[in-house]
Computed example of a mutant assay.
Amino acid sequence: MELSSQDALLIIDYTNDFVDDKGALTCGKSGQLIADRIIELADQTLADGGWVILPTDVHVPNDPYHPETKLFPSHNVRDTWGWEYYGPLATWYETHKDDAQVWMMDKTRYSSFAGTSLDLDLRARHINHLILTGVCTDICVLHTAVDAYNLNYPMTIPASAVAALTDEGQQWALGHFKGVLGAEVIQ
């Protein structure tokens, strides 16, 4: 029996530390405003028989061996409020976490592919198209997109479902997705 190719929606780093006003490294309002669109896309992806994957940043506080320690305040520490999913996604994930086509995965670098089994997991499930959502558009979403491009995954990035720390970073990354990575950027 041959499986058909499928889409996967990646909801990247949509946690309290990156989205909530009190988060350690927050996008703030721009990140909060995309919550409903992310949930809408997650529901649609499941309804269409696709996969919903939640690559989630996780860190050890003040890790002297991690390059981000020098760049950013401590964030997304496992089992803390900051590491938990933000707002509506927390509720959505609790409802769907036992669905076979939904899974959370740890990542410790910007890219969801770096040091993870994501590529192998996608290929095993015959997933050949990625829809990237979450935060930060110009950091973790961007680095995931670059790796996906280098692994030959076609991508769609809904502009209404990604957010950056700055408007300039958002616009630059959206242009990079389209002009350099050949991704389809939609509203």
Rank of each mutant, 00 (worst) to 15 (best):
V141C: 11
T95Q: 15
A100W: 06
S30M: 10
C136W: 10
L89E: 03
F18E: 00
T95M: 03
E40N: 13
W51E: 04
A161I: 14
Y93S: 12
A164V: 07
G182T: 06
T156F: 03
D63S: 09
Q32A: 10
S5L: 11
K22V: 01
L41Q: 03
G134Q: 08
G49F: 00
G134H: 00
L9C: 03
T80P: 03
L118F: 10
I34E: 01
V185T: 11
T45E: 12
L122V: 01
V58F: 08
G169A: 11
G87S: 15
D121I: 06
T108P: 06
R125D: 13
G23I: 09
D13C: 06
T26C: 08
G115A: 11
V60F: 10
L33I: 06
I53T: 08
D119N: 15
P154G: 03
Y110A: 13
I131P: 04
V185I: 14
V58T: 15
I12C: 02
D63A: 00
T137I: 09
Y14D: 09
W83F: 09
A183I: 02
L71W: 07
E184K: 12
T108Q: 15
S4H: 14
Y86R: 07
H126I: 00
D43R: 10
S30F: 01
D63H: 12
E84R: 10
Q187T: 14
T45A: 07
F72V: 10
P64N: 04
I139S: 07
V135P: 08
G50R: 07
H143D: 12
C140G: 12
T69V: 06
D106N: 14
V185Q: 14
M104N: 10
P67S: 10
V60N: 08
G175Y: 07
A8P: 05
L130M: 09
W172N: 10
G169C: 11
W81F: 15
T166A: 04
K97G: 11
T45D: 02
L142T: 06
N76D: 15
I39W: 09
K107S: 00
Y149L: 02
D138I: 12
Y110G: 03
Y86N: 11
K70D: 15
G50L: 04
N16R: 10
A145V: 09
A159E: 13
G87C: 13
C27W: 02
L122I: 02
Y14V: 08
L10M: 05
R78H: 10
P64V: 07
Y86H: 15
S30D: 12
L25G: 04
K178N: 03
H75M: 05
P64D: 07
G50Q: 02
L122Y: 02
Y86E: 05
I39E: 02
Q44T: 14
R125M: 08
A163R: 06
Q101R: 15
L33N: 14
T156N: 11
V19I: 14
E68A: 15
L9Q: 06
F113P: 01
I11A: 07
E184D: 13
D99F: 05
P61L: 01
D138L: 11
V141L: 10
I11F: 02
S74M: 01
T144E: 12
L46T: 04
I11N: 01
A183Y: 01
D119I: 00
E68C: 08
L46Q: 07
T95F: 00
A124W: 01
S112C: 12
A42I: 04
I139E: 05
H59D: 05
V52R: 06
